[in-house]
Design a protein around this nucleic acid. Structure first.
Lengths: 112, 112
DNA sequence: CGTTATATGTAGGTAGACAACCTAACATCA
DNA sequence: TGATGTTAGGTTGTCTACCTACATATAACG
């Protein structure tokens, strides 16, 4: 996967991953792998800063917990986050429609 | 359309636009508008440098012509460019498959 | 003659993802 | 006892592709 391809879509991925319930960062990364069929393997240096950005933006909220002696920061969607996710899904559809209109299915026919 | 969404997909768009035949930069921008249903309106500062990158990479070739007193630099795909376009289309399919696996259709069901 | 459309570019800045690195608790196996 | 791996959370610095804004020139239209 070309490294820049995710640009601008990462937020949607994270929000969608949290749509099923609260998760901590590490689990988010694993969920992304699973749900993408292994295609997405995001490094922590990508995910953790992104989650903080989302929290700063008010789209997710986090709280600490300790499980088996290990610290976890679990995230969940806020109401604004759910709204943002809906917007992201719409934007995604528009985006793919636009790109596929161009990518088409092969050579473009002589202009009508 | 979020301005960053195109990141990493611009080359595919340009190559696909040239798949129908030779075009000059300005015409490429118009074709992108048309074929995307108006969703894509790429600034010249994005397209012209990108075309030069593609030419440097050997994916397109250009030549000058003069039409109605105006200079045009028309581009066409090279063989490597056609191969790159096919690869881009494949990458696009993989990309959307991965993202849609995550975005899904709504909240993720409790893990089976 | 001014404005709009056609046409090509450059310069500079930015943000977002990534690579590389670091810390820490616990588990497992030798 | 120590080596290695897994789970878990982070930071720092870099890269670069794209964007914004600007600059240029001709033709066409009013």
């Amino acid at each position: 996967m070309k490294s820049d391809a995710l640009r601008g879509h990462l937020d949607a991925l994270l929000l969608a991953t949290l749509d099923g319930g609260r998760l901590h960062g590490y689990a988010i990364i694993e969920a992304l792998q699973r749900r993408s069929g292994g295609a997405l393997d995001l490094p922590t240096g990508t995910v953790y800063p992104a989650l903080r950005r989302l929290e700063t933006a008010g789209l997710v909220a986090s709280e600490w917990s300790t499980v088996g002696g290990r610290q976890r920061r679990t995230y969940q969607l806020t109401k604004a986050g759910k709204r943002a996710l809906a917007a992201e899904r719409t934007a995604w559809r528009e985006f793919t429609t636009a790109i596929e209109g161009v990518l088409g299915g092969g050579p473009w026919p002589a202009q009508a």
